[in-house]
């Protein structure tokens, strides 16, 4: 029993580690491809987390043997079905992300999110203060821009 509890703890730790690494990569890196790798890590972590929730001590796969329910405990089938669905959804999102990255690169010849944000800001006038996805919207920068406009 203690041995299987150890496996469960280990698996949870792996899942949480993957999730944290993925989030770290997504919010701290500036290169779009690295950010998408972070997304893949994050999704893998969440899927591992789901699988671990369904795991039972010393359990077997939820498949009947010769039409009989096996004597040993079976793992929970619902998280497994959820993970299969989540993997396919993740693949769809990643494919679309890569398509957008290809087109972005063709348009701007860069994959650095901060450079992209600066070019976007020049083109559309959107006040982007930081170059990456997660930041706090700050009216200060817009204020600065208005002051500059007044002075010119």
């Amino acid at each position: 029993m203690t041995e299987s509890a150890g496996i469960i703890i280990l698996s949870y730790c792996g899942a949480i580690g993957l999730i944290l690494l993925g989030v770290f990569a997504m919010v701290m890196y500036r290169h779009l491809i690295r950010i998408i790798f972070g997304l893949m890590l994050l999704e893998a972590g969440v899927n591992l987390f789901l699988i671990t929730i369904g795991y039972r001590a010393n359990a077997v796969a939820p498949i009947l043997v010769d039409g009989q329910i096996p004597a040993a405990a079976m793992v929970d089938p619902i998280p497994q079905a959820m993970v299969l669905t989540a993997i396919v959804i993740g693949v769809g999102v990643q494919a679309l992300a890569l398509a957008l990255v290809v087109k972005t690169y063709q348009a701007y010849r860069t994959l650095d999110t901060q450079e992209l944000a600066q070019k976007l800001a020049k083109e559309t006038g959107v006040d982007i203060i930081e170059g990456t996805p997660v930041y706090l919207p700050s009216p200060l920068a817009a204020h600065k821009q208005i002051l500059e406009e007044k002075s010119t």
């Binding site: 993925g22 998408i36 997304l39 957008l100 990255v101 972005t104 348009a107 701007y108 944000a117 996805p133």
Partner: peptide
């Protein structure tokens, strides 16, 4: 437009983080 693609990929990244 290029700006549309760039805005959309940044939207996608934030939204995918949220979905996870």
């Amino acid at each position: 437009t290029g700006a549309g693609y760039a805005a959309s990929i940044r939207f996608l990244i934030l939204s995918a983080l949220g979905s996870s």
